[in-house]
Write a protein that binds this DNA or RNA. Structure first.
Lengths: 224, 224
DNA sequence: GCAACGACATACTAGGCGGTATGTAATGGG
DNA sequence: CCCATTACATACCGCCTAGTATGTCGTTGC
């Protein structure tokens, strides 16, 4: 469930021979390549340090094309959040938001993340968390978008916990809002710190700790 | 317990009339002002986006002086970590590392942070966490320094938990390493996310959730 | 088939950045 | 009192950056 990396996006647009005559035009594909390469560059370097020239080179697209599709670097960043980051976050947490038993679903995700945590994630951290930390205080457009993603995520987990409390799979004496805040904080905090330690052990410890915490949310007497 | 902000550091070095004759020289003070203003600028903008000119202006120091005291922007950044960030982190967590009853000490810190969380923290987040997220993947010098701080912090809490397990103030069936990872992840994760939401409620929810978690670490039968 | 619009490509500009070269004044040991 | 060294101050440089101006070629409606 890692963010996919378009290593060689220039399948149609050659980076070396740009002005060839008779090349087919595929504006949608060009746009998508730009978004994907921009996402990768932003993930590696952060938004502000992301170089348009680097994005151009990795995507094999020229500056004129970029500014045809996106009005500015900021607009490109917004589009990356809207069209790449948001769907990615939503896909990751969808099983939890839909599950009847949130605890089981969250445990599955914990183990999945601990198992297939990619080098990318260990090296560069969570793209969503990175953008929050870098851009939220600086730019209103980023803040509003990231805030919305975070809000939906938070409310989704709260809803899941409440549903679990209603159907008896979650203890009734816990505060859904607090539980959600804890889960999200651990999720984002642990990847950031694992990035600092550059070693998966811390992340694994946090995931196992989160598993224990999730288990403690089950009602004392399961069913009878 | 917030990071202090030296708003007007130019008490001796005037920013407007720099070349006055007969000014006293206080290299240690100059250096300290540079460090403090650099810390503030880095806290606000991140290290890479931190402008030397901005640091120079806010501190009332000239570029010549800066490059006399620090060999490069990177060296200045390292010094900020060594001489400002590290002592600040250590002072914040010292009570927990020294306490006989870790849970009580941690609860006190939770409430203290929830009470006097500063606007600075809500706006710009935790300086330590910000630096980790920004610089750890990019620069070995930063990574090693931040890694060391995190390591000491982590090990300190692990030690505190084990001490608590030895003297009976912490349940013996929990894994100290996992508990420490959870606490640190929540601490750093929650401020980062609160920064995104720009509202203290999320942070408060996380802190209350952490309090509940800490309470759950107490042994079932207190003493008699 | 032609015109008009969309989709690029190339070359250029202005500004901010970290860093440096060089000058000069204060300071402290002999 | 002198002189070397420290502690600055000023002016400048080259680089990289986002952004723009302008030209040109595919594509499509009529």
């Amino acid at each position: 469930m890692k963010a996919s990396t378009a290593k060689q996006a220039s399948s149609l647009h050659s980076a070396k021979s740009p002005a060839k005559a008779g090349v087919r035009r595929q504006p949608d594909l060009t746009r998508q390549q730009l978004l994907q390469c921009a996402f990768d560059e932003i993930h590696r370097s952060g938004f502000r340090a992301a170089s348009l020239d680097a994005i151009l080179e990795s995507s094999g697209v020229t500056k004129g094309a970029l500014y045809h599709h996106f009005g500015s670097k900021t607009a490109l960043g917004y589009a990356v959040v809207d069209e790449i980051v948001r769907p990615w976050v939503e896909a990751l947490w969808k099983p939890i938001l839909e599950a009847d038993n949130v605890i089981d679903a969250a445990l599955r995700l914990c183990r999945e993340l601990a198992r297939e945590r990619s080098e990318q994630a260990l090296l560069y951290g969570c793209p969503f968390n990175n953008l929050i930390n870098e851009m939220s205080p600086l730019d209103l457009g980023f803040r509003e978008r990231l805030q919305q993603i975070l809000h939906d995520w938070h409310e989704g987990i709260i809803g899941g916990v409440r549903r679990g409390q209603a159907n008896g799979s979650v203890r009734s004496d816990v505060d859904a809002e607090q539980v959600s805040a804890i889960i999200i904080s651990i999720a984002e905090g642990s990847v950031g710190l694992a990035k600092a330690k550059q070693s998966p052990e811390f992340f694994d410890a946090a995931m196992r700790g989160l598993e224990d915490y999730l288990e403690s949310l089950r009602p004392p007497q399961p069913l009878g």
